[in-house]
Design a protein around this nucleic acid. Structure first.
Length: 436
RNA sequence: GGGCUCGUAGUGAAGUUGGCCUAUCACGCCUCCCUGUCACGGAGGAGAUCGCCGGUUCGAAUCCGGUCGGGCCCGCCA
């Protein structure tokens, strides 16, 4: 019966069988050490029998094999146990020399990312690479649990859409049986429509952006964690996001200490309520600090995002910060302007460790107003199938509501301290990579 | 889309004000030695027409032009 490598300590003195991949071999004359990898980790086996060692001749790392032997405690063995009196059974011999070495850290230098992604199917076998995605899986789990604890219903919305979309980012156009369709750049309209049904909904799913961006923080396909809820205001949204980010960090450092340590990650300093700074304040502080005048600009420069995160870490005891008071003339048609301060959108961006990881806003829930905004801001036809059903949902009765979208890979990147968001994607898609 | 920058064995790097390059090193790979390795160690070996095309020159990895492929920043965004 097969056991996992992590279970060896429970079987000292017993004969066991483990299965996995050859991860490393060290031939030392009369002694041969091999390391076997399975889903639970790695373990060492000590082989003395020359005939057993000969079975490995010509076989490379990656060879699938089964090891039978007796578990022995030995302080010289990694982890204190190893397998002795080994009998090997080669399940799948691998003679191909791996294009990259997975038993030591892979280079994540920006110049070498192309190699990293080109050989991704092999490189991900490295325990250190796996750690990134174990962490990402845990983040997804923590996010899901937080939503569910907060009484959200998980939804699945279509990614194939009729042509019209929310505007802003470019969309991918595809041929749909002779008609033009687009790939969803966000679940925006659907999650809002679903507020009229479940009140609180969330989705964790891929979205597509046809932006020709070539930066360390953009991909053309990424996973968005979207939430939307009714009967709230912008302060409720901030509280929710503060709690969410804290919950993710707490969960991660409780359940993934090994993986986080692999990347030298440090737990983010986050107060219970993440502090807010208005865009005007940030421009002001940046201008004072650098002499570079950004006062009056309608967006934050990436340099300002990094600056204000450092400022918040140093002065506000928080590695995350909300940016508030975005100019209303830049807002999207479904956004809501602030009550009594109509020159500002009721919008927040969540900056974490120098990048924007989430954008949230209150939505315009009044049918006649959102209709007017659609026409004046987008110049769109309300009968267009891309907008028609969204408008119907508003007309059918929508409470004040708001929500946000958060980039899962960006969050993973920043939790681990990776320099490029693509490192936090199994198979990143960008302007010039569609495979593997 | 704009700016800057890079391309040398399977991988990572050195060499790039032209000649001493018949291209150096490390990891990996092959053969042999090695009974406690864990980035094992030791001896030997194979592997690169220096991204591609053209040009300048007695001579090009090195200079020039083109081309293909990357990267970083900006714009835009999560």
């Amino acid at each position: 019966m097969r056991i996992l490598t992590r279970q060896l300590t429970q079987h000292v003195g017993q004969k066991v069988s483990v299965s996995g991949w050859l991860h490393k071999k060290r031939l030392m004359g009369g002694l041969t050490f091999i390391v076997i990898r399975d889903r639970s980790g790695v373990a060492q086996a000590l082989i003395k029998d020359k005939a057993e060692v000969e079975k490995l001749r010509g076989l490379q790392v990656g060879t699938v094999l089964q090891i039978e032997g007796v578990v022995a405690e030995d302080s010289r063995a990694p982890g204190g146990v190893e397998i002795h009196e080994v009998g090997l059974k080669i399940e799948v011999p691998v003679e191909m020399e791996p294009p990259i070495e997975i038993d030591k850290p892979l280079s994540h230098e920006s110049d070498n990312l192309d190699t990293l992604f080109e050989y991704r199917v092999v490189g991900l076998r490295s325990p250190r690479e796996q750690a990134v995605f174990k962490v990402q899986a845990e983040i997804g789990e923590a996010v899901r649990q937080y939503f569910r604890r907060s009484d959200f219903t998980e939804i699945r919305t279509p990614k194939l859409l009729a042509a019209a979309t929310e505007g802003g980012a470019e969309v991918f156009k595809i041929d749909y049986f002779g008609k033009e369709a687009t790939l969803a750049q966000s679940p925006q309209f659907y999650k809002q429509m679903m507020v009229g049904i479940f009140e609180r909904v969330f989705e964790i799913a891929p979205v597509y952006r046809a932006e020709p961006s070539a930066t360390t923080r953009h991909m053309t396909e990424y996973i968005s964690a979207d939430g939307e809820m009714g009967f709230i205001n912008i302060e409720d949204l901030k509280k929710f996001l503060s709690g969410l980010l804290n919950a993710v960090a707490d969960d991660l450092w409780e359940y993934c200490p090994g993986q986080l340590n692999e990347w030298g990650a440090t737990k983010p300093v986050l107060p219970k309520e993440i502090p807010s700074l208005s865009m005007a304040e940030i421009h002001q502080k940046y201008t004072e600090a650098t002499g570079e005048n950004t006062v009056g600009e309608k967006d934050l420069r990436p340099e300002e995002e990094r600056f204000i995160c450092e400022y918040a870490a140093k002065n506000l005891g928080s590695e995350a910060v909300f940016v508030t008071d975005w100019p209303a003339d830049e807002m999207k048609f479904y956004h809501k302007a602030q009550d009594g301060r109509t020159e500002f959108a009721d919008r927040i961006d969540l900056l974490f460790r120098g990048v924007e990881i989430a954008t949230g806003s209150m939505r315009e829930h009044r049918y006649d107003v959102v209709m007017k905004q659609l026409q004046s801001m987008v110049g769109a036809d309300p009968e267009d199938p891309g907008f028609k059903y969204f408008l119907l949902a508003m007309q059918a009765g929508m409470p004040p509501h708001g929500g946000f979208g958060m980039g899962l890979e960006r969050l993973t990147q920043k939790m681990l301290g990776l320099s490029n968001v693509k490192e936090a994607s199994l198979f990143p898609r960008d302007i010039n990579r569609l495979a593997p």
